[in-house]
Amino acid sequence: MDELNDNEIVESQEGFVEEIPGVITTTSMAINDFLKKTVAQDVINWGRKNSLWFLTQPMGCCGVEMIATGCAHYDTDRFGIIPRNSPRAADVMIISGYVTRKYLPALKTLWEQMAAPKWVICMGDCSISGGPFYESYSTVQNIDKMFPIDVFIPGCPPRPEALLQGFLELQKKIMAKKDNATDY
C-alpha cells in the first residue's frame, strides 16, 4: 500500500478527518448546519407542521375530549392531524389528564419510543397543575420538568375546539422554529 499523502484521509483516535482530493466528504453535523442556513429547513418544517400525528393514550376526562377531537365531527385530517395508536408512528404526545406516579414510567417509555422530532401538548388543568389532585401523594406535579411541553391548553376539561386551537398554535411554533422538538 502506498504511503499516505498529506491530503488523503487520515482518521486519528479523536475522529479528525482530513480531506481527500477530488472527493467530497461530509458529516451529519455539517448537513444539519447547512439545512439550518437554507430554505430547506422551512420546507421541512412545512411538511412537519402539516403532518402532526398524535398518540392516543387518553387519561381521565380530558382523554374523552381528545378522542372526540380525532373523530369525524372536528375533521382534524384537514390540518394533517391524525390520531395514531402506536408511539412509533406518532410525533405528538398529548398529556390529557393527571399523571400518577405509577403511570409516569409508562408515559416516559411511550415518549422514548416516539421518533424525533416529537412534540408535547399538555391538556387540562390536571396535567398542567394537578387540578383537584394537587399535592396528592400519587399525582405527579410539574410535568413540564419531565417533558418538553410545547403547548399548554387550560380548562377542565378543555373542549375539542381548544385542542384543535392548541394544534394550530403548535403548527405556528414549528414554522417559526420556536418549538422544543428540534435544535435550530
Score class of each variant (00 low, 15 high):
Trp119Asn: 07
Ser127Phe: 06
Lys178Met: 04
Asp179Ala: 02
Ala106Ile: 13
Gly47Leu: 15
Leu107Cys: 12
Tyr98Lys: 09
Arg159Phe: 01
Gly15His: 02
Asn5Val: 12
Ala30Gln: 15
Ile94Asn: 08
Val10Lys: 09
Asn180Asp: 05
Met66Val: 10
Arg48Pro: 03
Glu8Asp: 14
Phe16Lys: 13
Pro154Trp: 08
Ile143Leu: 08
Thr27Gln: 01
Leu164Lys: 11
Asp33Ala: 14
Glu11Gly: 05
Tyr98Asp: 12
Ile153Asn: 09
Lys49Gly: 04
Thr100Val: 05
Trp46Arg: 15
Gln141Lys: 02
Met175Cys: 12
Lys118Asn: 00
Ile82Gln: 08
Ala181Ser: 04
Thr38Trp: 05
Asp125Trp: 03
Thr182Glu: 14
Ser51Gln: 12
Pro148Ile: 00
Cys122Glu: 11
Pro21Trp: 04
Pro157Lys: 00
Glu65Ser: 06
Cys61Ala: 02
Cys122Pro: 08
Cys122Asp: 03
Pro132Thr: 05
Ala181Pro: 00
Phe152Ser: 00
Asp77Gly: 10
Ile9Tyr: 11
Asn7Asp: 11
Leu104Phe: 04
Lys108Ala: 00
Tyr134Pro: 02
Gln41His: 12
Pro117Phe: 03
Met123Leu: 10
Asp77Glu: 15
Phe16Pro: 02
Asp125Leu: 01
Asp144Ser: 11
Gly130Gln: 06
Ile121Ser: 11
Asp183Tyr: 11
Met59Asp: 09
Ser138Gln: 01
Asn32Thr: 14
Ile121Val: 11
Arg159Pro: 10
Arg88Trp: 01
Lys172Tyr: 11
Gly130Val: 05
Gly166His: 08
Ser129Lys: 04
Ser136Arg: 02
Asp75Tyr: 09
Ser127Leu: 06
Gly47Ser: 12
Arg84Cys: 14
Ser12Cys: 14
Glu112Arg: 06
Asp42Met: 11
Ser138Leu: 04
Val43Ala: 12
Asn5Gln: 14
Lys178His: 12
Val140Asp: 04
Asn142Ala: 08
